[in-house]
Design a protein around this nucleic acid. Sequence first.
DNA 1: ACCTGAACACCGTTCAAGT
DNA 2: ACCTGAACACCGTTCAAGT
Lengths: 207, 207
Amino acid sequence: MERSKTQPYHHGQLREALVTSGRALLEEKGIRGFTLRECARRAGVSHAAPAYHFASIDDLLAELAARGFDELAAAMTAEADRVKGAEDAATGRLVGQGVGYMAFAAGNPALFQLMSSREANRLDTPALAAAADKVRSLHAAAVEAVIPHASGEIKQRMADFVGASVHGFISLLLDGQIGGKDSSRALKARGLSLLSAMAETVIRTGG
Amino acid sequence: MERSKTQPYHHGQLREALVTSGRALLEEKGIRGFTLRECARRAGVSHAAPAYHFASIDDLLAELAARGFDELAAAMTAEADRVKGAEDAATGRLVGQGVGYMAFAAGNPALFQLMSSREANRLDTPALAAAADKVRSLHAAAVEAVIPHASGEIKQRMADFVGASVHGFISLLLDGQIGGKDSSRALKARGLSLLSAMAETVIRTGG
DNA sequence: ACCTGAACACCGTTCAAGT
DNA sequence: ACCTGAACACCGTTCAAGT
């Protein structure tokens, strides 16, 4: 196979290129349509090339999931920072993080589903575990700030509650099990309504 | 290929046999390890045989998901009936349905994940849509009974809330994102605690 | 009508060989 | 060190042929 100067034998950035093409492919085709050979094709290399950078297809998926959790945590923090200055700062952050969580999931539905799948969890690389943990601690910290004087047990149960409400709502929405024919605006309102009911429960239970 | 009398050329019950072997395979290997050829193998037929009963592998998965929703609805109803006679009957049913939901998911994790996946939703057969709708209406009916005098909007939002809390908690638990090292008993307690906080929120918001 | 076996175009992974 | 091309054992789907 002949090669031009713009297509050297060594790619140089193949790992990153595979992550990029993989992420796009995941959103296009979904988890069941995701193939390593197509990732390689889009990165312009042979189907055997990825093996040097990823031990297996699951290894690439784990990397995508880990980066997804990093982005999710960043989206939560960014949205919480954006809305600070509302009535109660702590409650604002709790709700803001929920908004950031939902916005990330809505913008990256297939990646989010991968992150929420048992297969992603099964092959837990340290990077994946650490990234997922970051998201949990953000929820816990926001709850802590809202109900600082509650018992540890109450705090943990409210963290469960917050994580479950936020994750459950956006998951059901993306699966099409909530609000089939509602407009995007109406769905956002339903999401915000849920987050505010959630925040009230935290305040009432822990205060 | 020679054939004994116990292995006739025509299977007779192949559709049901494929559903049975498919469901077992799904739980064993997970969604990514699920193959039509292995289903056929376990049912004792050639790999081409399933094509007569299911148009594609997605068609079989849709059937598994639809039956899963039927079972899920039955599990919710059964558990709600079992606990009736508690303090408040309506609240007991609301919580009981949540317990039934979580128990089904915990007992059939891979099937539950399939039911909660975008791919299951994408190829929406009428049977699948109807079965999924049943679960939603059970949540809605339980909320209705707890807060009969609330507005339609409040009722819908509380139904969102109930669906999200229950689904989110068990999903995060099965993904390993909640209570990694907790015992089974401790996890059940956390689930019940979440359900009771959820019920209180419904009563307070809608009453 | 229902099922088989061969065929086709895929797939993940491995590995000698190339650069 | 990084990548290729061939090879292997799979896979979903199709289709002529068998019962």
